[in-house]
Simulated scan of single mutants.
Amino acid sequence: MAGLIFRKTRARAPLRLGLAGGGTDLSPYCDQFGGAVLNVTIDRYAFASIIPRSDGRVCFISDDTGVEESFEVDEPLSAAKLLLHRGVYQRMMADFNGGKREPMTVRTTVDAPAGSGLGSSSALVVALVDALRVVLGAPLGPYDVARLAFEIERIDLALSGGRQDQYAAAFGGLNFIEFLREDRVIVNPLRVSDAISNEFECSLVTCFSGRSRQSAEIIDRQTMGLKTADARTVEAMDRLKYDAIEMKRALLVGSITRMAEIMNDSWKSKQATATGVSTARIDELFDVAMRSGAQSGKVSGAGGGGFMFFIVTPENRYTLMHALNEAGGQATPVKFVNRGSETWHL
């Protein structure tokens, strides 16, 4: 029987800044108490290309990490080093192609290093799922794509992490996302005026600390604290959820100053969820930022390294970026994007 016939297909899914509530999307906290996060997607992307092959092989390529591997189409894939590529390929073929594997090249690149704290791994999985959705004609909407990406990462591959990144990448934009019991997720796009959105965008600076981190260790410590009902961890998560709600309210009325106050409180709560959230390097850059006009700041993602971001008055943004770069950071402005994962043919 002839194999699947398809055209070269590409997809991209945006990375995100976790503004507030990160960690409350972890089990078992959201399963018991419900979680809430506020995030926004930015102009950094995970890209995936699905390219047909005629040689009966499956090839996984990650251009940004320099890994390339090739297998016979029916060969076991357990030796694959590119776990995300393997996980998505196997699940999509099982669920939407009757278990029949198709020869193809699965090629990716990401606009941020691994461990960035920008949700890059989950955005990559969303891009892969979305590209293969088109190739296989799978009837999946944004909620389905996000849920399937979550299952592949957290269940199939047993990788530690939460839920917000997949939904941010699938939907895009500025969202308040609720994670409720029985795996219910509600994505609430926030309608803010162009003036508020522009002012907030101009008030943000991101800074790569120069060190990627292994978020799994921090997430595992947070999860253990929740499983053992550690009072300090649960109380900190409650505060993070409250901060997400309050920051949403402040954003809707355009109070950037109030958002900065909430972010400072939220950063303290974040550090209380587990050891290792902050490091000496993060503390150093935070001190530099606060001395250079930043009103608040925090780490994006689980912590331990990766990207930080700061709220600053637009008049002081250049001064802040210069100071952070002089201190060895990699500071840049922020550009919001409103579109989630997109696919196209060539």
Rank of each mutant, 00 (worst) to 15 (best):
V110D: 03
V73T: 12
D31L: 10
L324K: 00
R211T: 11
T109V: 11
E261V: 10
E182K: 14
S215Y: 03
V192T: 11
E75I: 03
E235T: 13
L38C: 05
I155T: 11
F309G: 00
G141P: 06
D283F: 04
G172S: 10
Q32R: 13
L140T: 04
G141H: 12
M1Y: 10
S54W: 07
A323I: 00
D238V: 05
G141A: 13
D25N: 05
R86F: 07
I5N: 14
G210W: 01
L180G: 12
A327W: 00
N264A: 09
S120Q: 09
E75K: 04
G3D: 14
G173R: 05
G254Q: 09
R184N: 13
L83R: 15
T206G: 12
A260C: 04
C202Q: 15
A244L: 04
I218A: 03
G99Y: 06
L84P: 09
I177C: 10
L251M: 12
R221K: 15
L159W: 02
V40F: 02
D220V: 04
D287C: 05
K270C: 12
S209T: 15
P76T: 07
S341P: 04
E326P: 03
F33H: 14
L204R: 01
S300T: 11
H85W: 02
Q32K: 10
Q271Y: 04
T105I: 13
E72M: 12
V205A: 00
T105N: 04
S296E: 01
A149E: 06
I282N: 00
E199H: 14
P113E: 09
G162A: 05
A272Q: 14
V312Q: 00
L83G: 08
A272T: 08
R181L: 04
K241N: 08
G173D: 05
K335H: 13
K100T: 15
L174F: 15
D95E: 15
A11L: 06
Q295N: 13
F309M: 01
G99I: 10
P14E: 07
E68F: 10
Q166A: 11
N325Q: 06
D95C: 12
V73L: 08
G115W: 02
V192E: 10
C30H: 10
V67E: 06
S269I: 04
I61H: 08
M93E: 09
E199S: 13
R317T: 02
T233E: 06
M259P: 02
C207S: 01
G225P: 06
A327R: 00
M247F: 04
I218V: 12
N338L: 09
G66A: 07
A127F: 05
R232H: 12
Y143E: 14
F310Y: 01
N325W: 00
I245H: 14
D230H: 06
G306D: 08
W344H: 07
T9P: 08
L180Y: 07
I51D: 11
E182T: 11
A289Q: 00
A20Y: 03
Q90I: 10
I50Y: 05
P333Q: 06
T41A: 05
V134K: 15
A146L: 07
H85G: 05
V67W: 02
P314R: 03
R249Y: 07
Y318L: 09
N39E: 10
